[in-house]
Nucleic acid binder design. Structure first.
Lengths: 197, 197, 197, 197
DNA sequence: GATGAATGAGAATTCATTCAT
DNA sequence: TATGAATGAATTCTCATTCAT
């Protein structure tokens, strides 16, 4: 599936496969999504990436390296997705409703990525070197949400968003769009923005 | 005083230690606080509790049992503390300010317990059997906060609280009381409660 | 071959085999004799002792533990052998000749143990915690040899003995008894002991 | 100055570094001095020499090659140093005193080299191909010491020297110059040389 | 010549779990 | 009831060695 069809030259060794490092990083996120941070092992990542174990330790010598790349990559992806969501938002959109939809999106189609992201986010509690990445994530959310409201409300919504996604990921049944929207709208009740709220 | 023929009850080894099970559970939380869920092992817990490894497996046969008791115990403690905080709140207290103080309390004097709590909370993402415990926790927070405001605001504040504590645990430097209070007050701006806000 | 024939009760697990710890220690010396200190691994020791790897790590958690027990055991054995040799020495024996014979004995029938002993002795250079064991060994040799001559000559002979055994272990062909005896006798030329020298 | 088109000779990577092979050999000795023979790895040597791993395997394809070059180089250096010491010795020097000083010198300013030398010397026990190097070393010592006394005393002193340096390297505290001198003088008591003793 | 990438084989450890006592 | 001993299965990590470039 990967790195073939080029010339048909069989190659089992040697310095090639330039995308491998990235594939390993992606596999790390996938493993965290499936088994949590305790399941993040070189072996599991190797299996998920379809590479030998030695390859994972070559590119990421320690587990912390793996954890680090997973967190950075996951946070970057998450920020990109939310930025994209913000960019596509109509100027006169109902922000509360749209934000509720974003929460649902994180829970549904992006469920796996969301799980991994929160796992990694919390793992940073025990890895001082990773805290800056988690903090930068918060900053980004505040900025994105604040740009549509105001800086203070940005901070409100960033925290609320994080809390809601986390809670909702664990709730059974999942909260309805309506209830999410109501909560968000209520927190935004002091906003006099472009939305109809 | 220890391990003697106190009541004639046959005992192969060791002293009568009725609190041991609880001590092990407490040690489990402590281990999670220090090393995260990946560090939760029978051995680490045994060392933290000052008991032989065999004792931890005797009381909690599998790692999942340890994780489960840690989560239940941690969530119960957390809820108790917050309930206590609510009970001691003056009827005319400034709720936003007091809630900001509670956030700070979680970060400062209860930092270790808070870290463990979030670790365990997130671990439930990968342990369906534990989700109910995490969800019950949210319910409790919503209830406590809602009792001082209204049910919907209770949900707002529960999510906001969770998000703020998590963010603040990772922020460097820690957010000031003022900024926390401002965020909370803003989210509560639609409340016409007993507080001076 | 080991631990059977008792009652025929098959037993693959469980807390028994009380001599196991000692057998592992003996196997460690054997491994060093065969492959040197670089070959001292839990796996090799396990194979030599006929026990699972987990058993070697249970009794000797780290390689240093294994190295330590091997050095202590080897030095103790070596001292015992030499003490025995001294005890069996006739009062009017030709000490130089007998000492030369002892050197040969170390090289021939005890070759394997001697090799291991010197390997471990030198390994102590890199393990400050083991230096005392190596030093105690020297002390013992000085004492044993000095008891038959005088304390100063004891120190001469201890150093000479160590140097000769080491050199002779590496020489090809092995030095003859005559040449060893001549060297020793020459170093002892200032002795007016009970021997005919 | 480095890695440029100096002479037009095609060069894929890296500067012209004619001394590199020797630097790697020197680094190998240094690694052995610090971590013993078990620590002698291509990687450790590469790090110590400040060259890529591929460079160590290029110049010394196998670990045995590294071990071999380290032993030969170390023994040669050691012999040179001792030869130099002998050459600088005054004709009427007190040989016992000077030899004691040489022992001290090995322990003090040349401590690291001495440690490595004995490590490698003993490693030859398990590498038949290296025994000749170790044996040649003994020969050299016997010759050097014998030239100042007589051949037999040369052999006495070579063995005594080896034993004393090894013992003294492990003794804590290090033996005094006086005690070393006394031991050496005692072993030399049958010598009627040029020295005052 | 030289080297970064790659990998399979182990290395030390850790560990959950079992079990005789 | 309790626990030390035991062990097989990982786990992280190191490494010698190979090889395309």
């Amino acid at each position: 599936m990967v790195g073939t069809s080029d010339t048909g030259r069989r190659r089992t060794r040697g310095p090639n496969d330039p995308g491998r490092r990235d594939r390993i990083a992606a596999a790390a996120i996938q493993v965290v999504a499936e088994h949590g941070v305790p399941g993040l092992t070189h072996r599991a990542v190797a299996a998920a990436a379809g590479v030998p174990v030695g390859s994972t330790t070559y590119h990421f010598a320690t587990l912390d390296d793996l954890l680090s790349v997973a967190l950075h990559e996951a946070s970057q992806r998450n920020i990109s997705q939310i930025q994209e969501w913000a960019d596509e938002l109509a100027p006169d959109a109902d922000f509360a409703a749209e934000l509720a939809a974003l929460v649902r999106l994180q829970l549904d189609s992006r469920h796996s990525a969301t799980t991994a992201a929160y796992d990694l986010y919390v793992a940073a509690l025990h890895h001082p070197g990773l805290r800056s990445a988690s903090a930068a994530w918060d900053e980004a959310l505040s900025g994105i949400f604040g740009a549509r409201t105001d800086p203070e409300m940005g901070r409100v919504l960033a925290a609320l968003f994080a809390g809601l996604v986390l809670q909702a990921s664990l709730a059974d049944p999942r909260p309805s769009h309506e209830s999410l929207e109501a909560v968000i709208r209520r927190a935004m009740s002091g906003v006099t923005g472009p939305g109809p709220g």
